[in-house]
Structures are given as C-alpha cells and as structure tokens.
Design a protein around this nucleic acid. Structure first.
Length: 573
RNA sequence: UGGGGUGUGGUGUAAUUGGUAACACGACGGACUCUGACUCCGUUAUUCAAGGUUCAAGUCCUUGCACCCCAGCCA
C-alpha cells in the first residue's frame, strides 16, 4: 500500500501544452511552469470531499478546476473520500456525491480512493513519527489542550506529557489502537512548536479515539487520523502533483509540509489555494445547508431551492449550465461574492437555445370566443423551438373556450399595456387575433370571464390585411387542458448576503421562496412530459417536470423566469 | 510588532510582465419582435490611500488603511 502503481499521468507521455484557448489562471500558470521546468512529469489532481453532506455549487468550482486541469494537461483527477471521521460520515452521502460528480459531467475512471484505504499506512507513519521523537501521546483533556494552546497573541505552553519517553508513547499509541481507552481519553500529537505564531503548528492532534463504526472499515479501528494528518499523506500516496484547495487551508500548508518532510512518503505534493465560491441570495456552507435540511426549512437536500447539485438538478438546471457558470468565474485568491444574475444568465442562455416551447397558463382566466363554433376543434401548428430550425413542431388544439393568464387582461389598462382589455385586439400565439367584447364579473366585482370574437382570417397568427397587434398571449384550450401543480421558486434568502451585518442567517430566509399553484392549465402535449427535460412555458419561464408528479397529476417546477421587462415597467409606474 | 492572505467599475475577472485600463454579467437608453423572450446598437472605472522612482506605474519602492482566515480530539 505504501507504493501504489504510479498513475498513468506520470508515465511521461502527457501533453504539457493545454489548448491554446483554454482557461487561464494563476494555478494553470503554475502547472504550465512546473511542466515546462520539469518539476512535474505529469498532472495528478484530486477532488477530496468529506461524505458528511451533499455537494453544492461551491464544490462544483473545485470539481471543475480539479477535473478540468487534469483533462487540459492530459493528467488524471482522483475522486477521494476524506472519510476520517466516522462520527459524521454516512454511506448515503458517499453514493450521492458520486452521482452528483457524474451528473456534472466528470469521470474519475478507476481512480476512486478513500482516505480509509490508507489507514494502516498512516498508522505506521504515525509510529515512525513517535520513534523519531516527533510525536507523543498526550493525556490532557480536550479542554486542557485548548487552554495549553494559548491564544492568537499569546504562545502556548507544553503539555506535561510532551517529553515522555518514546517507548511510552509508542506503547500508549498501540494501546489506543487496541481500543483500551475511552473516547477522548488520549490523543497523538505532533511535537512541533507550542510558541508558533501559526496555531496549526502548536502540536496539532494527529489521532483521536473514536469508537464508532466506519462506513468502510467497520469497527476495525478505534482511532482515526485527523484530516490534517491524513490529507497530505493521502495526496503523496496517490502521487498527487498539485493539491488544490480553498483559502482557509492556507495556514495548514506549513503543517502538511512538515509532515511530508518528516515521513518517508513516495512523492511530494504541492498545495495551492484558491478562493471558494460565494453566491448571492444563498448560503454555501455545509453546516448551514445541513441545518436547513435538519430544521425543515426546505424539503430536503434536493429541494429545488437548495444550491446543492441535486437541488439544482431537480430545479431543472442542466449540468453544462453550471460548468459554463463556473468557467466564467475565474480562479483567484480574492474573496468575492458572485451575483446570482450570472447564474441566471447562463441558465437562460443555454435553455433559450435548447429548450422546447409549450404553452401553459398558471392563473387561468376563461375566454369564450363567441363567433367560434361550439364543439369545433382547430389544430394549429406550433414551433417547438424558434431558436432551433431542426427542432420540429407540434399541434395545439384551439376551441371556443380557452384560458389565458389573468395578468394578460386589464379592465382599465395603462397606455403601455399591450395585452387584452375591453375593446382591444391581441394575438393568441400560433392561433388567431381576438378582440375583447365583454367582461363578466362575480358578485365581488372580480373579472371571472372574458367574452371575445376572433378573426378567422388571422389563422396562424398573421392578418392578411397587414394590420398589427402589439401583444401576443399564450393560451390553452379549456376542453383539452391538463391540470397540473406548478411550484414557483424564488431565492431561498431575501438578502443577497444572508446573515451579514450580524443578523442570524435564518432570519433572512425568504418567506415567499416557494409558491404552489394547484390548478395550472397545460397544453395537452405536456401530459407525460419526462422528468429531467427542461422546457419553456412561453412568456413565463423555464420549467421541468418533478418526480412528485404522476401521469394523472403532473407537477412542474419553475427553473427560472424569463427576463421580464414589463414587470420592470410596471414597477416604475 | 501573533501568524497567514487579499485590495482594478454595481459584480466577477483581464491587462503583452513598466507602454497608456479589456471581457462578461448587471443597470440605464434605443432598435427589432407571432414569447414585453431572444437578437442588435449605445452609455456605464483611471486600478484602496498618500508619497516616491521613471519619458511613462494597475504593474517597481516606501508608509499607511481596509477586508478575509486561524485558538475542533471538524474538514
């Protein structure tokens, strides 16, 4: 296990030059230089998630970087689970992470690893450190260790166990492994420098006693390495050349380097840190996302409002859209918060080109076309996607009674309103021009039905006499409509930076992040629409069928609205 | 005088390594339109601050300032 076969990327037959037009950033520059100078013979990266939660769009940045870099330089990227803490990790998360990485479009081939694969080797190396006087078993309690560590501005002081004999530490450590002590009774610590300005160097804990079954190793271990101890050595064992991680690990690097220098590892990984992704109107910390799920603020990890990959997938956002979004971010060391509108742009740009169009009415208002014969059905041609000449078409049935959107009618419209009103003429998409002749209200004065006439000459949507109408409305034949539940999603948080300014981030939850419409009316071709295929409801936005739906009772999720300049005009008054 | 990082428009990035601020998103204005969508056109910064070096500074030097991370037996 000490000496796994070197990855194919290190056989020397790799291309040092990525695509001339590929992405450029400080990390790729470093790799290019390393290759050119012969400091590296190939590129091996890794994506190292801890299986204690679901992957989110912040992870996507790391995944795209690590797998992307490997691809561009002809190297490999390992998927390695950092499963060093059985108290928090679960098989469910392991399975979900693999599914999500694949969905995002990346493939680790045979290079699936686990930190737990290296437990025996890591243990042997720990003994090596003890034997060389570089680690000791400490019997201070957790609280005492914290006290002894000092503060940011004051040096720590040595534990009374710090200078115990090597043999004694070795014996203690072996008995820790044998399970002789209770959880937390003792730890193995590196012996570095209790006065170091970098807290990570004040004799960090390497091993702790955790008597919990591990998803992979079961109960064969009662001690587990800390992440700080396991990570660098795991990289070394996998011959990782460039270990890419986020900024908060920057001051752990001296510790990783110290361990690598003091251990007979097979290779020398170099770590480089980049800024993690922050996105507006959401949170991207596993702690917070876990809390949202645990406290029921969302329906689960795959709630379409969640920034998790599984949530985005259920929301109808295609993986190429996420990759495109990530590629526009750039890789730097600057803390930043990306505007949500950039993601929206990527989604709309992709879906505009690829999504089929259909008509659906969210809030139906019945229109009776009085001069259209009762019982007659006119099947009209509709284009699947105007952006795709080869996209084909489908037909939509037109009848005497149809539904239009409540928002598309105003009894007393302002001058800039192009839609239907008393006496006004508009086009029904792919169908006819209609003119509103009467408005029917209920006792409370609400408009409940519209009476109209149509112009048979305008079949298909154009008037032979060349007259123009300013508005085009979507519609659905009442007799053919498929009733559906539609879930309208908005930002999970109403503040762009939830929890900023000292607020509790939970206080920034958007109470209107989900609106459920029970009786939306869909055109008949939407019956049985496959889950996972995002489409556009004309003039409304992009939607996808949800897994909660059935053939009889379909459910659609709104992926994203279309840009709506009318809403803006309306708001301005 | 704890340690480690980062400062370019509203946002995210770029700038041949000293040569006269580029791209994208957004916003605003306009054109077009059988989706108020899409598309198209225009407008939108002198680079944290102050000094200094230089013919020339976002890039070099000096001194400040601001912000982020670290005191888990989490990762």
């Amino acid at each position: 296990m000490t000496d796994p076969t070197p990855p194919a990327a290190l056989d020397g037959n790799t291309s040092a030059e990525p695509d001339a037009v590929g992405p450029r950033d400080f990390i790729r520059d470093i790799i290019r230089d390393d290759l050119a100078a012969g400091r590296a013979q190939g590129v091996v990266t890794r994506f190292p998630p801890e299986p204690n939660g679901y992957l989110h769009i912040g992870h996507a940045k790391s995944i795209c970087l690590n797998f992307g870099v490997a691809q561009e330089f002809g190297g490999v990227c390992n998927l390695r689970f950092d499963d060093t803490n059985p108290a928090k990790e679960e098989q469910e998360f392991i399975d979900a992470i693999m599914a999500d990485v694949r969905w995002l479009g990346f493939d680790w081939g045979d290079n699936l690893f686990h930190a737990s694969d290296y437990f025996e080797q890591l243990y042997q190396w720990a003994e090596h450190l003890i034997e060389n006087g570089l680690a000791y078993v400490d019997e201070l309690s957790a609280d005492e260790i914290r006290e002894y560590r000092g503060t940011l501005t004051q040096p720590g002081k040595p534990s009374p166990w710090r200078d115990r004999p090597v043999d004694e530490s070795l014996d203690q450590f072996r008995r820790m492994r044998a399970g002789e002590f209770a959880d937390g009774a003792k730890v193995l610590r590196a012996k570095i420098d209790m006065g170091h300005g970098n807290m990570n160097m004040r004799d960090p804990v390497l091993y702790r006693i955790v008597k919990k079954p591990h998803p992979r190793t079961g109960d064969t271990w009662s001690i587990y390495p800390t992440y700080d101890y396991a990570h660098g050595q795991s990289d070394a064992l996998e011959q990782v050349t460039h270990s890419l991680c986020t900024l908060e690990f920057e001051d752990h690097r001296p510790l990783y380097d110290w361990l690598i220098e003091n251990l007979p590892v097979p290779s020398r990984p170099r770590q480089y840190e980049f800024a993690r992704l922050n996105l507006g109107y959401t949170v991207l910390s596993k702690r917070r996302l876990t809390q949202l799920v645990a406290n029921g603020h969302v329906s689960g990890w795959d709630d379409p409002r969640m920034p998790t990959l599984t949530g985005l997938r259920r929301r109808g956002i295609p993986p190429e859209t996420i990759r495109d979004f990530i590629s526009r971010l750039g890789i730097t060391k600057q803390d930043s918060q990306v505007e949500f509108s950039l993601l929206e742009h990527c989604v709309r740009e992709h879906l505009n080109k690829s999504a089929e169009r259909r008509m659906a009415v969210l809030r139906p208002l019945k229109v009776v076309i009085e001069n259209f014969p009762k019982g007659e059905v006119d099947n009209l041609d509709a284009i699947n996607n105007p952006e795709d000449p080869d996209g084909g078409g489908h037909t939509v049935p037109f009848t005497r009674e149809i539904y239009i959107e409540q928002d598309d009618f105003m009894e007393d419209p302002p001058k800039k309103f192009f839609r239907l009103g008393p006496g006004r003429e508009v086009r029904l998409r792919y169908a006819f021009f209609i003119t509103c002749t009467d408005v029917i209200k209920d006792a409370a004065g609400n408009v409940v039905e519209i009476r109209a006439t149509y112009d048979p000459e305008t079949r298909g949507g154009d008037a032979p006499d060349g007259r123009k109408v300013k508005g085009t409305l979507h519609w659905v034949s009442a007799a053919h409509a498929v009733k559906a539940q539609v879930r309208l999603y908005d930002h999970l948080f109403q503040e762009e930076a939830p929890g900023s300014g000292g607020r509790d981030y939970l206080d920034d939850l958007n109470p209107a992040s989900l609106e459920i419409i029970e009786d939306a009316m869909l055109e008949p071709s939407l019956a049985g629409w496959p889950v996972g295929k995002t489409l556009q409801f004309e003039r409304l936005g992009y939607f996808c069928a949800d897994k909660d739906g059935t053939a009889d009772a379909p459910v659609f999720n709104r992926t994203m609205t279309l840009r709506d300049t009318w809403a803006k005009v309306k708001k301005q008054g």
